[in-house]
């Protein structure tokens, strides 16, 4: 026998920065555009990674997500423990764009997609001081 129950629903949206313009991306020309022209067109990236030792990869992303959350709680009987049920429907994704540059800072290629697909394999590394010493010699 139900003695008391409560249901709550919440709708939450989250924005983070502006999306990278697809119109700007499609106008980029690999082999012709360089780091300077890309920074002018797209602004500062969110992340920079080393690519093939002397190249680099730049990543832009944004958040535009909406999520529903439903919470139901009830007492099923007097002196019995309460029950609570909740459900989240989160459509959060983090779309973005990545640009790759060679050692001369010339654009090699660009891709649009989700961050989890664009970012794997890129990890900032600390400076290799021994390698720099060898280069200096």
């Amino acid at each position: 026998m139900l003695h008391g129950s409560c249901m709550q629903a919440a709708y939450t949206v989250r924005y983070e920065d502006n999306p990278v313009s697809t119109g700007v991306l499609v106008r980029l020309r690999p082999g012709e555009d360089d780091l300077e022209s890309c920074l002018t067109s797209l602004g500062a990236p969110h992340h920079v990674f080393e690519y093939n030792y002397d190249g680099m990869a730049l990543l832009w992303h944004h958040v535009d997500s909406a999520a529903w959350a439903v919470t139901v709680s009830m007492n099923v009987a007097r002196n019995a423990p309460g029950a609570r049920f909740s459900m989240d429907s989160d459509s959060a994704t983090m779309p973005g764009a990545m640009l790759w540059f060679d050692r001369d800072c010339r654009l090699i290629k660009w891709r649009q997609g989700l961050m989890r697909d664009l970012k794997p394999g890129f990890r900032p590394r600390p400076a290799d001081l021994e390698q720099q010493d060898r280069d200096d010699r």
Partner: peptide, 19 residues
């Protein structure tokens, strides 16, 4: 509204990269 609630969050960043 107790039974139905809505929230929104807007976050923006300043970013500068110097190479």
């Amino acid at each position: 509204l107790f039974v139905f609630n809505m929230f929104a969050q807007d976050m923006r960043t300043d970013r500068v990269w110097a190479f």
